[in-house]
Design a protein around this nucleic acid. Structure first.
Lengths: 147, 147
DNA sequence: AAGTTTGCCTAATTTTTTAAGGCAAAGGGA
DNA sequence: TCCCTTTGCCTTAAAAAATTAGGCAAACTT
């Protein structure tokens, strides 16, 4: 459960480049590559590392807009709304939260029209409140890892 | 700018496991490994792939709570609030959005107390509206990649 | 205090990646 | 239309990296 200095170092490096070789990771942690391999295996096994993945730039794959939509299902519509959200290919992330707004959804969109169509699709089952993303002052990153 | 079927396949596979070997990627796309290497190089060069990275499970590194906070800076405080947010080690993501709420911030927190302390720190400069994450119906994923 | 586990090491083998060279189809210009 | 360039792929060989095996010492366990 607790991370030592070497684990933190590995996580930081991998967060920046998950394809770093064991050899490179080994060099900066002053471990041998088999030891690094073992550490990574355990970090995954322990669930610390959920996945090795990629960040894709939505703008470069045709999604020119990004929106954060708060969704408040109407009475009795919660489950079906949840399912509708999950099935939207434009939805890249959805959290169920406390408060009046039940879901917070991040959408990637090709156009305003697409946003409109998408929201129309759930308008009968939920109230929505949409914010368009104008900038991203903090891009997804690791939180502080200090113990 | 446009992705062909092979690019889409590579992106999907890497989104699930960014450490897949070129050989494995080559096998499922029926290309040779040098060709896959070249494709990846170009996807990065074009900016389609922003980064190879890891997903870390916040619960496993001591962050038991997750919050989505909407932040509305008071007049004249926008820039300083933006900087304060950027400097919070608990902030893993922040978007500047349209609408009354200027920023949408995702925080990882070790305790309620930590949340309280953090928000107190900007209370004089911004109004905040906090939602605690109860569940995540859609974990960060790729959007549809169809052309 | 003996036994076990953990975490690391080195060395050897296997696997993967990278580099080089070539070929054919597609695109562009004269 | 024809030639030339570019692009995207291939194979092969060389270089680099990952994995496996075996061993050792320190830290827990009983």
């Amino acid at each position: 459960m607790i991370l030592d200095e070497i684990d933190r170092r590995l996580l930081s490096m991998l967060a920046e480049n998950a394809r770093l070789s064991l050899k490179e990771l080994a060099a900066t942690t002053e471990l041998s590559s088999p030891s690094v391999a073992e550490r990574l295996r355990k970090l995954e096994e322990r669930g610390v590392i959920d996945a090795f993945t990629i960040d894709v730039n939505p703008q470069h794959i045709g999604y020119s807009l990004q929106a954060i939509v708060r969704v408040r299902p109407l009475p009795g519509q919660l489950h079906i709304v949840e399912r509708l959200i999950q099935e939207m290919p434009q939805c890249v992330e959805c959290d169920k939260v406390t408060g009046d707004d039940c879901f917070v959804v991040r959408l990637y969109l090709r156009s305003m029209e697409e946003l409109d169509t998408l929201l129309d699709g759930i308008a009968e089952r939920a109230q929505t409140n949409t914010s368009l993303v104008k900038a991203t002052p903090v891009k997804r990153r690791l939180p502080g890892l200090s113990p």
